[in-house]
Write a protein that binds this DNA or RNA. Structure first.
Length: 800
RNA sequence: GCCGAGGUGAUGAAAUUGGCAAACAUACAGGUUUCAAAAACCUGCGAGCGCAAGCUCUUGAGGGUUCAAGUCCCUCCCUCGGCACCA
């Protein structure tokens, strides 16, 4: 008998499938559509990671089954190819990023094909292709047109030694990733996108999609919506006020100070003359602290008294005004009312500076020792004394609103999206600065604004993007008045191209639109999107935001892009660490394919553990899968000449069909594979009892997981058309049940015996069988039967 | 600190959602085959007692609900992921 030899068969079938175009999705097909999306990779020089292979093959199994079930499947692939590694490589070697990227893409494509992934290669997209990023820029213009893109001074991470702005990912532990210098914050005018305008809808619409719960909660926490009250504290000396935000207005009688962030606009004005030097020194020091230090020093709350006072609007007490850098400048107006008795941070601050601690909510803790932060009954609170916190919050807010001293309000942790990067290898932001007309958008007909090809990619040293040095490209005429003007030299962040790529797959060649609306109506939304947990709060949120915006301007037909989102766990190296070249522990899928074949790699990656769980590679475990495939090969060829399968095997097989079908739909790939193994063990013990009927169906059932070996065997048993074009296998509940079931017999909930019965027997009959049974009798002797629990077709429990 | 996910054999893990704990796989041990090795195949494999039939114990710790708990409830410990002075 011929032996299983993956290297001999895999390439052959891959070429065959590609040539026949088996996996191309058809627009407007009458079949129901099923759009499955995996996160398109950044084509790094390291090639495909086994982690990519894991999620791609698992979803590949899902879509292969869907096709067999009669769905018109779209399973596309593309390249998220803008990014720093290519730019850094270009700085080092002078090789243009587009050349590096092209080379890497070719390698990725070869690797993916060698795994037999059933992507629709006709729909490939590449974010660095001007025909693609033309539309990324177009979306930016629309955002600008609709007031959702604006310029603002924002700090960037600055390496004083490299003289370059750094992305957050390039700052490791407060230091520049390349040279180790401590980074600084530098203010720079940057483009911002108003994602905060969509905060509510981004939360609310989570109710209409099927995402894993932890993905939903992570997004909700990230957006961080909280309900509270804004209160005005009038200044004692000036005719101005400080507005603070609080979620606990019920504690306002306990205010002993108001604390401003160092960046707060009123700091200068409220500082008295004799305090000016001290306050300015404090602000200077806190500015010098990098973001990193600020969070490291979390526990140390410092501040300085400004010398002036404001008035508590409820009890007209004089309240000291302080400056403290524990107050977040960008949240709630950058000012807080300090209630030491009922806030942990304020408590610490008050202790440090000997400020009064006034208890206004009674609770079970000792205010002398720590703050009481829960709700309770109000005390020492004038007319509100005695009210429970919740009620007091409403009443006090109402009063403030009547007196026009405050109002109910909502705050979010979510900030607007900093959209500028000072790098070369990204989409140019399509904006022109004219000294007369100001900010002028590039007109749509002039898109794309192409990246200029240059010889040098070094940063300019001024904090501007390398594009700033290319005067030929920078200097243009104003589209409005034709006078000399300059291009925006910042580029877009990596997240731009990936925020809408799933739309482009639907109509990748369209030169008039992002995508044709009719096609979008057919294909959207994505039915199943799988990706990494690390993208939950950035990519996933950004792309939902863009999609909602595109929906609002009528470009896409639905408000939510993804109907379902799951996530896969990272694949670690055998030593339990992350795979990394420097550790020397990287598993290269090419090596695995060469040695054991793509099917072994695919099946092993599905079998290794629960799909959503982080898991370490185990070469030994993979060899077990190789052995299993060989067993399947041998058993198929051994059994196919048997005429008929026996009933017991048919029942087991029907069970398998049910299990595999359900597990695929719920991403339980590991148990699906385990069931195949179990069945193969059963087959091997009952070789004479498995016939051609089962073998044929088994190959179809297994085809989504191991497409090559099943295709080869399918032909070997004499079939003329591909196994992947067969109809999915159904199962019958009746056959599953079989003729006999095992019923458990328990005495006092302890298993004492098992009996074989026909399905559906009643309690009386079982009781008769059991109570007379010799095995059981000895347990009953001298005891009284108190109760009998009977679960049909499952167990009988006799309680003594 | 807060939010989320977990804690089951030597190891990766199963457990129809309250009904046989440890499926499947790896590792290990013994055997068949072989001049030998590898491969393949067979047997065993949570712990304890026992010649055996069998019995008892066992899912991070402790308590509870139930005829029945890995699964539900309470208290606590530990690991991982996210957020982190957001008032």
């Amino acid at each position: 008998m011929e032996k299983y030899n993956p290297s001999k068969i895999e390439k052959k079938w891959q070429n065959f499938w590609l040539k026949k175009g088996f996996y191309q999705a058809k627009d407007f097909s009458k079949k129901p559509k099923f759009y499955t999306l995996i996160e398109f990779p950044y084509p790094s020089g390291d090639g495909l990671h086994v982690g990519h292979a894991r999620s791609y093959s698992a979803l590949d199994a899902v879509v292969r089954k869907k096709r067999m079930q009669g769905f018109n499947v779209l399973y596309p692939i593309g390249w998220d190819a803008f990014g720093l590694p290519a730019e850094n490589y270009a700085i080092k070697t002078g090789v243009h990023p587009s050349i590096t990227v092209k080379k890497n893409i070719n390698n990725f494509r070869r690797q993916m094909r060698s795994l037999g992934l059933s992507f629709d290669w006709k729909r490939e997209v590449n974010t660095t292709d001007p025909k693609y990023y033309k539309w990324t820029q177009w979306i930016f213009l629309k955002l600008f047109e609709n007031g959702l893109a604006y310029k603002s001074k924002m700090p960037i991470n600055w390496c004083p030694s490299c003289k370059i702005g750094l992305a957050n990912e390039e700052v490791v532990g407060g230091k520049c990733e390349r040279c180790g210098t401590v980074t600084e914050q530098k203010e720079k005018e940057q483009w911002m996108l108003k994602i905060t305008k969509y905060a509510d809808r981004l939360i609310d619409d989570l109710g209409n999609v099927d995402y894993l719960d932890r993905i939903k909660t992570q997004q909700i926490n990230w957006i961080g919506k909280s309900f509270g009250t804004e209160v005005d504290f009038k200044l004692e000396q000036l005719d101005k006020k400080i507005t603070v935000f609080t979620t606990r207005i019920d504690t306002i009688f306990g205010v002993t100070a108001v604390v401003l962030a160092p960046e707060h606009a009123l700091v200068r004005e409220v500082t008295t003359e004799e305090k000016t030097a001290e306050v300015q020194e404090y602000i200077k020091i806190s500015k010098q602290k990098s973001e990193f230090e600020r969070t490291k020093l979390e526990k140390e709350k410092t501040g300085v008294f400004t010398g002036s006072y404001c008035i508590n609007p409820l009890n007209n007490e004089r309240v000291q005004i302080w400056v403290g850098d524990y107050v977040v400048a960008t949240y709630g107006g950058g000012a807080v009312m300090m209630v030491p008795a009922h806030d942990v941070r304020d408590y610490e601050f008050a202790k440090r500076y000997n400020l009064a601690i006034k208890e206004v909510v009674s609770g079970n803790s000792d205010i002398g020792k720590q703050a009481f932060v829960e709700c309770g009954k109000l005390i020492n609170s004038g007319e509100f004394t005695g009210l429970p916190s919740k009620e007091a919050i409403n009443k006090i807010t109402q009063l403030l609103e009547e007196k026009k001293l405050g109002k109910k309000t909502i705050q979010y942790k979510l900030r607007d999206w900093v959209f500028s990067r000072q790098h070369y290898w990204g989409e140019p932001i399509p904006i022109i600065y004219c000294s007369k007309c100001g900010i002028v958008p590039v007109s749509e007909k002039d898109l794309p604004v192409k990246l200029p090809f240059v010889k040098k990619y070094e940063p300019t040293g001024t904090g501007e993007s390398p594009l700033g040095a290319i005067s030929k490209w920078v200097n243009v005429k104003c589209p409005k008045c034709k006078s000399p003007a300059k291009r925006e030299t910042d580029t877009m962040p990596n997240w731009a191209g990936s925020s809408w790529y799933f739309i482009r797959y639907i109509d990748p060649k369209n030169s008039k639109n992002l995508a044709d609306l009719r096609k979008l109506k057919y294909w959207m939304p994505v039915d199943w999107y799988n990706g990494g947990m690390e993208h939950t709060t950035l990519h996933l949120l950004y792309s939902r935001f863009w999609h909602k915006f595109l929906y609002d301007i009528g470009v896409v037909p639905q408000p939510e892009p993804y109907a379902k989102r799951t996530s896969h766990g990272i694949v670690l190296a055998e030593d339990g660490r992350k795979m990394s070249k420097s550790w020397g522990n990287v598993i290269n899928p090419d090596d695995v394919v060469r040695e054991h074949g793509a099917d072994t790699l695919r099946v092993y990656e599905m079998f290794m553990g629960p799909f959503d769980q982080m898991i370490a590679w185990d070469t030994k475990g993979m060899i077990g899968v190789r052995r299993f495939l060989e067993r399947m090969w041998n058993l198929t060829l051994a059994c196919v000449n048997n005429k008929k399968s026996d009933k017991e095997m048919l029942s087991a097989f029907n069970k398998l069909v049910k299990k595999v079908s359900e597990d695929l739909d719920s991403a339980k790939f590991n148990t699906a594979i385990a069931s195949f193994m179990e069945f193969s063990n059963l087959m091997s013990a009952n070789q004479g009892k498995v016939g051609k009927d089962i073998i044929e169906k088994l190959l179809i059932l297994f085809a989504p997981f191991a497409p090559h070996i099943t295709e080869e065997l399918w032909r070997k048993i004499g079939k003329k058309t591909s196994v992947h074009l067969q109809k999915w296998v159904g199962y019958s509940e009746e056959l599953i049940q079989g003729e006999k079931i095992t019923l458990l017999v328990q005495i006092n909930s302890k298993l004492r015996d098992k009996i074989e019965v026909v399905p559906g027997v009643g309690q009386k009959e079982i009781e008769a069988m059991v109570l007379g049974n010799g095995k059981i009798k000895k347990w009953l002797e001298g005891k009284e039967v108190k109760k009998i629990i009977f679960v049909p077709n499952k167990l009988i429990n006799i309680v003594l």
